[in-house]
C-alpha cells in the first residue's frame, strides 16, 4: 500500500470527524442569541469604540529597546551551545559579532536620544 494512501486516509478520517461533530451540533445544540450575547466580550461592561485603536507613536522606542535586548538574548542562548564546536565555532563567532554590532548601533542611537537616562 502506498504511504500516501495512509496519509489520505488519516486526512479523510479527520475531515469526517470534523463534519460529523459540526453536523451533530447543528441538529442538537440549543441556541438562544440575544443582543447582549452577541455584543463584544469586554469583561462585562459595554464595549467602547471599535476594534481598531491607535497607539501613540512614541512607544516605538520601547519596542526598539525590546528588540535590542530580548531578541539579542534569544539568539545568544542557542549560540552558546555551539560555540565550542569545531565546524561552527569560528564562523558563528564572526556572525554573532556582526549581529551584536548592529544591535549596538541601535543601542548607541537609543542612548544618544536620551532613552537610557533614569527619569
Amino acid at each position: 500500500m502506498s504511504p500516501y494512501l495512509t496519509v489520505g486516509g488519516v486526512v479523510l478520517a479527520g475531515a469526517l470527524l470534523f463534519v460529523a461533530a459540526m453536523a451533530v451540533r447543528l441538529v442538537l445544540a440549543p441556541r438562544a442569541p440575544t443582543a447582549a450575547k452577541l455584543s463584544t466580550y469586554e469583561c462585562g461592561v459595554d464595549p467602547v469604540g471599535e476594534g481598531w485603536a491607535q497607539t501613540n507613536v512614541r512607544y516605538f522606542l520601547y519596542a526598539f529597546l525590546y528588540v535590542v535586548f530580548a531578541v539579542d538574548a534569544v539568539y545568544l542562548f542557542p549560540w552558546a551551545t555551539v560555540i565550542r564546536s569545531t565546524d561552527l565555532g569560528v564562523a558563528s563567532l564572526a556572525e554573532m559579532g556582526i549581529f551584536i554590532a548592529v544591535l549596538l548601533v541601535g543601542l548607541a542611537h537609543a542612548a544618544r536620544r536620551g532613552l537610557l537616562r533614569w527619569v
Binding site: 451540533r25 441538529v27 442538537l28 445544540a29 440549543p30 441556541r31 442569541p33 452577541l38
Partner: peptide, 13 residues
C-alpha cells in the same frame, strides 16, 4: 436593530 431568531434547540433534539 438586529433581527434575532427565536431561541430553540436543534431541529432534531
Amino acid at each position: 436593530r438586529v433581527e434575532l431568531p427565536m431561541p430553540r434547540v436543534g431541529p432534531v433534539n
